[in-house]
């Protein structure tokens, strides 16, 4: 399924046997499961009426539960429903007015500013689709703000390799959305400043170590020594803190 859908599907694994985050991270590194876009948590966001594990819930593009049960016995059904949801994402919900199709297309393409401009025109006309268009504008604004918030989180946690591409991408997507665009430009300026050189260098060094860990798992050669060196060389940076955490996970 992953080969078929790739990044088009979010995958969130929820550990429900009481392991702490460090154990889950250690376990995933050991199995070489990291380095994908799958996410992992020990917090159970909700329950479904299913016995034993593994079990799953499939959420549609609007966040609604559309299927749950055993992921192995329902594998084909999951694939079928995921495909349906990808179609919804591309074409829009069944009740999407024709007047908002172009806005939706821009929205799904990640061009938030253009999507809002197109939907706003429908709002301004004040015709029968205006109410739907108002809701769509709100959804687009929320999604755009969420993307900028995530960039901000990446910056704050020293994940500068990841944030660089995201900011380049977002700069165009939110152009015309004054506040969000200003936040993106401010982050880019900070990222490129001389003050951030040590953080940038540390981030690149840590990304290399993580790549090796993801590929070779806990048997990666000298990974603990490499992490120790990074912690020492870039002491005081956010990446050094992350490297220290990773060292704790690797050696636990």
């Amino acid at each position: 399924m992953a080969e078929e859908f790739g990044d088009a599907v979010n995958v969130l694994f929820v550990e429900v046997q009481g392991a702490d985050d460090g154990k889950v991270e250690h376990f995933c590194l050991d199995k070489k499961w990291m380095g994908t876009s799958a996410m992992w948590t020990t917090e159970r966001p909700f329950n479904v009426e299913a016995r034993g594990i593994p079990h799953f819930a499939l959420l549609g593009v609007d966040g609604e539960v559309i299927l749950f049960g055993n992921p192995i016995s329902l594998h084909s059904k999951i694939e079928e429903l995921v495909q349906e949801q990808l179609d919804v994402a591309r074409k829009g919900p069944e009740d999407l007015p024709k007047s908002l199709k172009k806005s939706w297309k821009s929205f799904q393409g990640g061009n938030y500013a253009d999507a809002i401009e197109k939907a706003q025109k429908v709002v301004d006309k004040g015709e029968e689709d205006a109410e739907y268009a108002t809701g769509l504008v709100a959804d687009i604004e929320k999604r755009a703000a969420g993307s900028v918030d995530r960039a901000s989180w990446l910056m704050d946690s020293g994940r500068l390799v990841e944030v660089e591409d995201l900011l380049d991408d977002l700069e165009g997507r939110v152009e015309g959305m004054e506040d969000l665009h200003a936040r993106v430009l401010a982050m880019k300026e900070t990222l490129e400043s001389d003050d951030m050189k040590a953080e940038r260098d540390a981030a690149k060094a840590l990304a290399k170590i993580e790549e090796t860990l993801h590929k070779d798992g806990l048997k990666a050669r000298n990974v603990d020594r490499k992490l120790e060196k990074l912690v020492e060389k870039y002491a005081g940076t956010k990446c050094a803190e992350r490297a220290k955490h990773l060292l704790d996970v690797v050696t636990r």
Partner: peptide, 16 residues
């Protein structure tokens, strides 16, 4: 969870 909207999301409950 709201951050995941826009794409289908598979939430898998598992154990270590």
């Amino acid at each position: 969870l709201a951050d995941l909207k826009g794409k289908p999301t598979l939430v898998d409950f598992w154990g270590t």
